[in-house]
């Protein structure tokens, strides 16, 4: 199951990191706006929440951590 979670997190990371830079910026996140039912403000909130060190870019590790937390919450519910 851990591999599946990692695989999913990486898939989602790649959706955000279209240019395959290895990190996701605020702009990358805002680009998802037409595709996802979230407002620009909400996408900004998602970015800030995932950006644990607050350096303005999301690493795969930060993304995976956020996704794991989300899954744990879902399981708890």
């Amino acid at each position: 199951p851990e591999l599946t979670v990692l695989g999913k997190a990486q898939e989602f990371f790649q959706i955000c990191d279209l240019e395959d830079k290895g990190f996701v910026t605020r702009q990358d996140m805002q680009r998802l706006h037409p595709e996802l039912p979230l407002s620009l403000e909400e996408l900004e909130k998602v970015f800030v929440t995932l950006d644990a060190d607050g350096n303005g870019s999301l690493t795969p590790k930060e993304f995976i951590t956020g996704f794991s937390q989300f899954l744990l919450e879902q399981i708890a519910l």
Binding site: E11, F12, L36, P37, V46, T49, L50, G66, F67, Q69
Partner: peptide, 29 residues
């Protein structure tokens, strides 16, 4: 604690975000 409040709101948004990604993935062929 304002941080606690911000955290709670962000969690909901995060769940919304990942749920959207999940349905986007499963929704496409």
């Amino acid at each position: 604690d304002p941080n606690m409040k911000a955290g709670a709101t962000s969690e909901g948004v995060l769940a919304n975000f990942f749920n959207s990604l999940l349905s986007k993935k499963t929704g496409s062929p």
